[in-house]
Design a binder for these strands. Structure first.
Lengths: 179, 179
DNA sequence: TCGCACATGTAACGTGTTACATGATTCA
DNA sequence: TGAATCATGTAACACGTTACATGTGCGA
């Protein structure tokens, strides 16, 4: 039996539960209210995810029958869960993360407070901005070498992507000053 | 039998095939080479997708045995396929698209040249920037109303998101001048 | 002869989506 | 009475991921 790969949703749940133990319903409302990347908070996503995490021993739920109309199941991360979270936070940033999972990287950054380690955060931001700038160079090259027949719309769409990454790079440099 | 929902990958394929008829292998290479959002171009994704589109009559493939080492199957969109594509391009932009599918919107824009209709493109960009700006207001409100105990990292992550959307808004205004 | 580029596909697997089910309590 | 909120869950379904299978021709 090979271990399943932990999804971004799993990490998001782990991070939120680290912040404060809460129920599936509470978590769903956070996803609905807050701008957390593109998580949906649909029951069909989060309850099964919580179930998996509990089966794997990364979180532990206990029923709180006191307050609620219907008994709540409040989850909190286990030691193993906290370890999994920090491993994720400290993971090396790959070019591929920057190319296709910027949202996940930003989520990772958001939970970096968990580490309470300025050095780690600085390293993260340095690595992030250097990867982003590397990718920006690739995008600029791509833009210059676009075939002549490339329609204007397609060119502009590429600049939109470039501008988004530039915004990320600027943000990272500014954020770095805070640590 | 309810009709399945056309995925973003389907539209991407439809758009690329509209640009020029080509094989699955050609398409895969485009996804690998070009920065097209987060498409992978893995065979397990694109061949089944082409199969579905062909079954639904949106594209039509014919085998070209002449040139290649191994016979190529070259696909081109049908009339219905072109119609599906334009319907997608002209679809009203919803707040939800902006919140969770900016990439798809940019892809849509990239294929707008298909319409060859400056008015439609202008409408798209106007609608896009107005939705983005509306969402930006919501994000700014969210930022102001962040609970006091919100960790710095989480605050900064939110500003990263805001900066990305700002970049989009700026881009849209600039792009608008081209049409 | 080894590996790479060309070229198309399938199988297992897990995840998210949508829609449904359930049921108590509060409020108009 | 009916609707909304709280609260948890399941079932069908389809998609993408990873890994595998297959086979030709070219260059080192």
């Amino acid at each position: 039996m090979t271990k399943r790969t932990t999804t971004t949703l799993d990490y998001a749940l782990l991070g939120l539960l680290h912040q404060s133990p809460q129920s599936g319903y509470d978590l769903r409302k956070i996803f609905e209210t807050m701008a957390m990347g593109s998580f949906s908070g649909s029951p069909g996503a989060i309850y099964p995810a919580l179930g998996r995490l509990e089966r794997e021993g990364l979180i532990k739920g206990e029923v709180d029958a006191t307050t609620a109309l219907r008994p709540k199941k409040v989850f909190r991360p286990t030691k193993a869960g906290r370890q999994t979270l920090t491993n994720w936070l400290l993971r090396e940033i790959e070019r591929d993360d920057v190319e296709r999972r910027v949202d996940e990287l930003l989520l990772r950054f958001a939970f970096h407070w968990v580490l309470d380690n300025k050095t780690a955060t600085r390293r993260f931001l340095e690595s992030f901005s250097s990867e982003v700038e590397g990718y920006l160079e690739a995008l600029n090259r791509q833009q210059r070498q676009l075939p002549v027949e490339t329609p204007l719309h397609a060119r502009l769409a590429l600049t939109a992507g470039i501008e988004q990454y530039r915004a990320c790079a600027r943000w990272a440099r500014k954020a770095l000053k805070e640590f």
